[in-house]
C-alpha cells in the first residue's frame, strides 16, 4: 500500500528572540513546527546552549564538574573568557549566587560590577541570573539591568513574587527576561500575561516552566514543555509562544547520581561518565520536548549535546 505522510501545518509559531549585540549576537526560537520537525516546516535557529558561570567560586559543585574550571573559576571574568575562547560557548549564563542572603550576601552594587566586568570581557550573549531568592533578586536584577544597559541580555528570573520590578528594569534597559513558574502550564501562561499587561512586549520573553533532573521529576518538565509548545503551535496561543529555557546544570549536579562514588555503588558505573551522561541526557530530552535555550555546566556534556543538535538539524 502506498504511503502518504501525514504532515502537519500549524497556525502558530514560536517567537524568534534576538539575544546579545554585535558579532556574538544570536537568536532563539522562530520555528513553526514541533522540535526538530524541519520536514514539515521551518526552524530557522538552532537551540543555544549557555555555559553556566558564577560570581563566586563553585564550592558547592561536585568535583567532576568543578575540575574543568579549576584554573579559572576563582574569577568570573576569567571563567567567562575561558568558556567563550576555549570552549567556544555560544552564550554565557552568569548566576549571581553570591548575592543570596544565606551565602556571601553580596550587594546589588557588587553584582553590577561583576556584570560590567564580564560584559567587557566577552562578546557572546549574556544571561544574568539572580540567586533565586525572590526578595533579594529584585534589587540585584534592577542594578545589573542598568549596568548592562542596551547589551540585549537575558535577565532572570522573574517570578510571580517579583516580576514587576524585574520586568520594568529590563524594559527600561532593553533586555529580555526569563519568566519562571513552577511546573504548571496555567501558572506559566498567567505569569506571561501579567508581565505583558505591564507593557512588556511578549516577543521579549523567555519562558522557564522550571527544570527537573533525570530521575527527579524530568517527566513533569518534559510534559509541561510539550504542552506549552503544542499550545503555541496548534492553538496559536500568543502567551505560550516565547522560546523555552531548560536550566539544566543546577538541577542535575545536585542529585545523587552525579555525586555518589563508584566505590559505594559499583552497579552505577563510573562517576565521571555518569555525571556527564546525566546532564547530557536531561538536556537532550528537554530539547526534544521543546526547549530552545539551555544552561549547562560540564564541557563534555555540552559538546555531546551540541553534536546531537547538529545531527538533528
Amino acid at each position: 500500500m502506498a504511503f502518504t505522510p501525514a504532515k502537519e501545518a500549524y497556525p502558530g509559531k514560536v517567537y524568534s528572540v534576538a539575544i546579545g549585540i554585535g558579532e556574538g549576537a544570536g537568536a532563539v526560537g522562530g520555528e513553526n513546527v514541533l522540535p526538530f520537525h524541519s520536514f514539515e516546516g521551518a526552524a530557522p535557529n538552532r537551540p543555544v546552549i549557555a555555559f553556566e558561570i558564577q560570581d563566586v567560586p563553585p564550592a558547592d559543585w561536585p568535583e567532576s564538574v568543578k575540575k574543568p574550571f579549576a584554573a579559572v573559576s576563582d574569577d568570573p571574568v576569567k571563567w567567562a573568557k575561558f568558556c567563550q575562547d576555549e570552549l567556544k560557548a555560544k552564550a554565557i549564563a552568569l548566576r549571581l549566587v553570591g548575592t543570596h542572603p544565606d551565602r556571601e550576601n553580596r550587594s546589588a552594587e557588587e553584582a553590577a560590577k561583576t556584570v560590567k566586568d564580564v560584559l567587557a570581557a566577552v562578546s557572546v550573549p549574556l544571561i544574568i541570573l539572580g540567586s533565586n531568592h525572590a526578595e533579594k533578586d529584585a534589587p540585584v536584577l534592577v542594578a545589573v539591568s542598568e549596568a548592562a544597559k542596551d547589551k540585549n541580555c537575558i535577565i532572570g528570573k522573574a517570578q510571580e513574587a517579583n516580576y514587576k520590578t524585574i520586568a520594568a528594569a529590563a524594559m527600561a534597559n532593553n533586555h529580555k527576561i526569563i519568566a519562571m513558574s513552577e511546573l504548571d502550564i496555567n501558572l506559566s501562561k498567567q505569569l506571561n500575561i501579567l508581565i505583558t499587561q505591564m507593557g512588556f512586549e511578549k516577543e521579549r520573553l523567555i519562558t522557564d516552566p522550571m527544570c527537573s533532573a533525570l530521575g527527579y521529576g524530568l517527566e513533569y518538565t518534559y510534559s509541561v514543555m510539550e504542552r506549552i509548545r503544542l499550545a503555541a503551535l496548534t492553538q496559536n496561543d500568543a502567551t505560550m509562544q516565547p522560546p523555552m529555557l531548560g536550566d539544566i546544570g543546577m538541577y542535575v549536579w545536585k542529585v545523587k547520581e552525579t555525586q555518589a562514588p563508584e566505590a559505594d555503588l559499583p552497579h552505577w558505573g563510573s562517576l565521571e561518565e555518569r555525571g556527564i551522561a546525566w546532564e547530557a541526557v536531561t538536556a537532550t530530552a528537554l530539547l526534544v520536548a521543546g526547549a530552545e535555550l539551555l544552561i549547562m555546566r560540564h564541557p563534555k556534556a555540552v559538546e555531546e549535546v551540541q553534536k546531537t543538535i547538529e545531527e538533528l538539524i
Binding site: L214, G215, Y222, H267, W268, G269, R274, A277
Partner: peptide, 20 residues
Amino acid sequence: IEKWKNLALFTLRQNIYTDP
C-alpha cells in the same frame, strides 16, 4: 552497555513511561 549509560537510559525510559 556501560553501567553508567544503562543507569541513565533506564531512568529516562522509566520517566517517560510513567503514568502522567
